[in-house]
Simulated assay, not measured.
Amino acid sequence: MRIAIFTDTFYPDINGVAQTLKRLTTFLEAQNITFKVFAPDSSTEDLVSGPIHRSKSLSFFLYPECRLALPNLFQMKSEIQEFKPDLIHVATPFNIGLCGVYFSKKLNIPLVGSYHTNFDHYLQYYHLPFLSKLHWNYMHWFHRTCKKIFVPSPATYQLLKQHGFTNLELWPRGVDCQLYHPYYDKQSVKERYCKPDSYLLTYVGRLAPEKDLSTLLAAAKSLPSDINQKIHWLIIGDGPLREELESQAPPNMTFTGYLGGERLAEVYAASDLFVFPSSSETFGNVVLESLACGTPVIGAKAGGVQHLIKAGVTGLLCNPGKVEEISKAILYLLSNNRLREQMGRSGRQYALAQNWEHILHNLLCQYKDVIHEREIQKYA
């Protein structure tokens, strides 16, 4: 099996799409399956080696962490013809993804796609709702020749189904429970950021409008002053809203920038609660990482997050944008140590069952089905 992956973001970019595809290619390599990734060059010099074709790119103004590729079609076509893939997987609907769709048609190669980002939801936050119809028309056109469209959660599955998409398949995400675990030195982490006896509340993610951080900030400020004195917030990540958020943040809130690897995992583990107000997630990788570290999550009852949190068991769900609900949830869990600890244990047990190996083997079976169907049609 030879797989060509076309994506407008790839490792070392810091986002869910890049992380997921890096996990996929690592798995393919371990299975001795030949693959080639077509992706933009990166703003960082820490580029991985291997079967990756990088295209020149520019920073995308709405999402600077993603690159707008300027692919060389002649060079790309030459590499594709030499590689001779059995299947093309397009992961993003931008320039590189368009190249994947084009070569699938041009060279008669079976095509699958994966849907990672709810751009329609983003339009509301960027004051562009009038583009919604155009967005869905484009997404239909982009995916119309895909034999399968892989979606990360039941909520995303239902959303696309309601918009008339077919050939949908669930492709959930796993978590590395050897990296993300509850057994880090929690005390030393707390000493690094706050008073050792403080409650540590954490957010991890991009600092951007679609993450609804205004709701988180309002909830933090609405807590009673006697409780606030015992709380310290860690806001982990970066993005276009960082400067604005820092200027509005209360004194008990620290912005760390990006953290990764063990430094991120130990913060999850040391946190008493993970608070994630975003309702725009198609999955919510950071929620699963927090659960793996034994930390309960307060999240939005929307998108992919609502399927990761079992309300009352691994955390609490609040209606999107409801500041008072989030504040009440925080106060309730901070005043119930035993329940919080039980939720942490349940979250860890849930995360242990979200095994990447099993998830990616299932994806491989889906690839094989598409390739096999193509072979049957060829000789019919």
Rank of each mutant, 00 (worst) to 15 (best):
S279H: 12
F283C: 04
A265W: 03
R206N: 09
T44A: 11
T145H: 15
L134A: 14
P251E: 11
E324L: 09
C194H: 01
G303L: 03
Y102G: 07
V305C: 02
Y258P: 02
I96V: 11
L47P: 02
Q306L: 10
L245R: 02
I88E: 10
T215L: 02
A18D: 00
I3E: 02
I52T: 00
G164H: 05
Y203T: 00
G205R: 04
S42H: 07
Q158H: 13
A292K: 08
A265P: 07
E65W: 01
M139E: 15
S222L: 08
K148E: 04
S55A: 11
F6S: 01
L334A: 07
S42Q: 05
S247I: 02
I236P: 01
Q178K: 15
L223Y: 06
N362E: 15
K77F: 08
L24R: 11
E82A: 14
F6A: 01
N108K: 13
N32I: 09
E82D: 14
L201T: 00
N228Q: 15
K105N: 14
L62M: 12
V48S: 14
P71C: 02
I14M: 10
L288A: 00
N336C: 12
Q377V: 01
P320Q: 02
P129M: 06
N362L: 13
E357N: 15
S346P: 07
V189T: 10
K230C: 08
V112L: 00
T295S: 03
